[in-house]
Design a protein around this nucleic acid. Structure first.
Lengths: 345, 345
DNA sequence: GTAATTTCCGGTAACGTTACCGGAAACGCT
DNA sequence: AGCGTTTCCGGTAACGTTACCGGAAATTAC
């Protein structure tokens, strides 16, 4: 009772051979109905569980997916949940590693998962990563690799992501429609794709509405609350200060909010503010902060689906590129004009 | 170049036997220094990686830890991070499963991890779980099992947890010291251990300060914001309403806060409020909310250390019980008296 | 120079599973 | 009855690794 039963044990007790037992268990056609029944009964009684290790060794696949993410914040943990959901359904187990936005950790994680013999990878690359050799080596070995959320042109692989350009666009256009005239943007690090796309959306919105791009209103700063706080203080200290701030993450929006409050300005009257990701905290703070929501859970699910397709088809899918649309949540921080049809939350 | 090199491959190229290669790689004493050097050189050149599956099959251990948690909220994800930290250090990989507070999912996860052949389990039991047979079966098979955070007397195993009684106590005593006279508590489900311990701490604080226990001030409700919101509305509708509310989670505190605001009461003047866990959002809301912090990361680390000890010693450690102390963070929602030495954040 | 010891290495079996092959027994057909 | 076909089963090798054993060659001891 201590050790789990093996196929050999069943064979011995039944006085048959292990190959017959193996076939019976896998419901092979060339085994007698009665013996099949007997095997099944006994294996049930001994509560037989096939040894995954042995199976994996034999089949050279582990039914495990390696997932590497830069962190487990609100958005990414939802995406991981989406991946998990689909993977489990399809009989795959997921191993999640955090790179903590560090290139070194990302390489270590890749290596570790690789020698844990995962069947493939679903990856969101760290912001620090500029060389992609460790991922290309994976691809050379013909190991399936899907990227999501943080995409880079340097890595050609099936991908899933938010339409970040659209996100930046609708946020900015919303501010414009509310009558804001000098809209600043707190963007992220310059080499980060999602940041640049959102910035591009911002610029496109300005262009569409015939507003001039002003470089002093475009701030690149780290992806967190404190940097955003200080960046906003500087923005507000300008002679011609902006009358609205567009951010590319909620953490940054909160940093901005604190700086705005400290300065004694009111939202949305004196200055408009909008975040990105729509974390729950945004509807708890005062004023409540508008934000762009992305379908995180869905993105995770699509990533896993793509991965599994890729695994089965094994034809080249590197061109596949799924892009999902964001949604705007308007709250107090940006609702300067009373709207009849503004969506509340 | 496509397939990873095996020990056999190295042996062939070197014109030696696989056992020699194996021994050389493991630095066994009975192998010539020169051959050892040759093997190491070649294995390096071929970038040989031992096949984990084969090793695991041979050694009957996978160097993998199965972790089951009810969810991945702020506290638990910090704990998991702590587990991860220590486990990685010790050469173990962690597989995390969420039970979503569901008994069924918990059983499924246990089963899945079991046949993924994890070396053992680190578990925080779901609130729904009342039968522990699935865990006891693990123990009967002599598979190491450590429980953390959500402990139950029905499961005898090495454990790590917060001193929940102390948490409830310091929160309540703080409110008492601030001069609140009618202190209500929003507790969790009746069968949840951590809830009961915190409630006990609350009662002990009342007793110490010679205050009467009043059953109508003790509310059992689900562990989330909405339930807490409605429960608080009822509390505030009483003829003799409470002048302070102690909660056992921050989510509940936020629900309570919303109800208090809706009623038009001010914190801390009209009513005091304190949360539990000290999530970051608490310092963003207005007013900022006091809370009891637990050393989550540390708890995770201790859990993993205990697990690894248990794995190596293999002596009975079921009596081991680590209990860590909470810390009080006082903010606006409960600071009625201006204190000289109140800790701010 | 023989015996005893050390040094080093190869062969084999095993971990638990599955794929493949070959063959015995049973059946169907004329 | 003789032949071919089907049905069912067992043996064997393999996945990549390691533990164990036995033995050849080299070294030491007298």
């Amino acid at each position: 009772m201590n050790k789990p039963a093996t196929i050999k044990e069943i064979a011995k007790q039944l006085g048959t051979s292990i190959s017959t037992v193996s076939r019976a268990l896998r419901n092979a056609p060339d085994v007698n109905a009665d013996t099949k029944k007997a095997v099944l009964a006994l294996s049930d009684e001994l509560s037989y569980q096939p040894n995954r290790l042995a199976q994996s060794l034999r089949h050279k696949q582990t039914h495990t997916i390696g997932v590497i993410v830069p962190n487990l914040d609100y958005v990414l943990s939802m995406m991981v949940k989406g991946i998990d959901e689909v993977a489990l359904e399809a009989g795959y187990t997921v191993m999640v590693c955090q790179s903590n936005e560090s290139f070194g950790r990302e390489m270590v994680n890749t290596r570790r998962l690789l020698d844990s013999l995962v069947d493939g990878f679903i990856i969101s690359v760290s912001s620090e990563t500029k060389s992609f050799e460790h991922f290309k080596k994976i691809q050379e070995r013909k190991i399936p690799l899907v990227v999501f959320d943080r995409i880079t042109p340097h890595l050609v692989a099936p991908s899933v992501r938010l339409d970040n350009e659209a996100g930046g666009f609708i946020a900015t256009e919303h501010l414009i429609e509310q009558g804001y005239k000098r809209i600043a943007i707190l963007a992220g690090p310059k080499n980060l794709g999602i940041s640049n796309s959102r910035l591009e959306g911002y610029l496109n919105a300005l262009k569409k509405h015939k507003m001039k791009r002003e470089n002093e209103l475009i701030i690149h700063c780290e992806f967190n609350q404190d940097y955003a706080f200080f960046a906003t203080k500087e923005l507000l200290a300008m002679k011609k200060r902006p009358d609205a701030i567009c951010t590319i993450s909620d953490r940054m929006a909160i940093g901005a909010m604190l700086a705005i409050k400290e300065k004694g300005l009111r939202m949305p009257q004196d200055i408009g503010l909008i975040g990105f990701n729509n974390e729950p905290a945004l509807s708890l703070v005062t004023p409540t902060i508008s934000s762009v929501e992305q379908p995180s859970f869905e993105i995770g699910k699509v990533a896993a689906k793509l991965f599994i397709q890729n695994l089965h088809n094994s034809e080249d899918m590197s061109g596949v590129e799924e892009v999902l649309k964001p949604k705007l949540f308007i709250r107090e921080s940006s609702r300067k004009i009373l709207q009849r049809n503004g969506r509340l939350k």
